[in-house]
Write a protein that binds this DNA or RNA. Sequence first.
DNA 1: ACCTGAACACCGTTCAAGT
DNA 2: ACCTGAACACCGTTCAAGT
Lengths: 180, 180
Amino acid sequence: MSTPRRTDARRNRARLVAAAAELFDEVGADATAMNDVARRAGVGPGTLWRHFADKDALIAEVVGDSLDNLAALAADLRAEPRALRRWVVELVRHISRYRGLVDAIAHAGPDGPLGGRCHAVEAATADLVERARAQGEVRADLTATEVVRLAMAVAWVNEAVTPPDTADRLLSLIFEGVDR
Amino acid sequence: MSTPRRTDARRNRARLVAAAAELFDEVGADATAMNDVARRAGVGPGTLWRHFADKDALIAEVVGDSLDNLAALAADLRAEPRALRRWVVELVRHISRYRGLVDAIAHAGPDGPLGGRCHAVEAATADLVERARAQGEVRADLTATEVVRLAMAVAWVNEAVTPPDTADRLLSLIFEGVDR
DNA sequence: ACCTGAACACCGTTCAAGT
DNA sequence: ACCTGAACACCGTTCAAGT
């Protein structure tokens, strides 16, 4: 299913992913209608559903490479000072790539297509949290899950409210603390 | 419009608000269908739309008293130590009263019915931020808008992911800071 | 093996007809 | 002045019929 054998099927699949990426850019991942994706790809709705079980699977396909690249970046940051902090900045940027993406990620079941794509990101975060903790840079009780959730929270609030803060500002408050 | 003159109209309005509150409790503010509210209230859909211009207006009516009480609470906290911190805990709790409420609040235009209800909350927050700053308890550059947004971010992420963290834990990270 | 597109279900929203 | 409920538009989803 993921790589169909017939050439027309492969072409249709590629067109669907391209059409979805365009619409995600234009109106957001949340606001794109499945039927619009099919129409822009020049196929019937049934073809879309044959290739992707649900909207999550389509989103996972569109952002999959991007998330894989993100996880790979963690290895480069590993040796840098304040690696975790830089990592979270990238995390927020990728989660904010399309409007509505953060909702899809947050509500994705761990066994679903999107949840699977996020697994490497979680693992990379855990590694960086571990190192930051060993370095004494962050609280000893900080967990990777908490870091990812704070990143999602920042990404969400920045696209939910107008005008948005910069993500950097909210991350500064969170890392350095509100209290003085 | 807000207080209709005919007795049947007043009764219908009260029934609609009660039905909406029930459904918000059962399935969340985001998942309740307008037609279901009308059906449970025992009126036609048209009657619902006659009383409330859109879903935001209905939500604003249901949570209005609650938000007003919240704003009043600020006065009581004013003299307490660490008033801002306690305030934010209450803020998060009220924003989380119904599933999906935080989305409605975040996306509410400032001139809409929900935005209007939130105005007093913003003002109360600004007052407490001011005092906390004067006391030297928080960063000098902290704004009330940022505090409200952090509260919304925490409320959102806690209802978006499973299992939820406790709000207290995320607020501890944010106030005391992730860094050590 | 894969595609097509009509069709169904659901929900927000409106409006002509009533009382 | 207010209510009713049929009806429309929209969108996710399915499926019988095709090639």
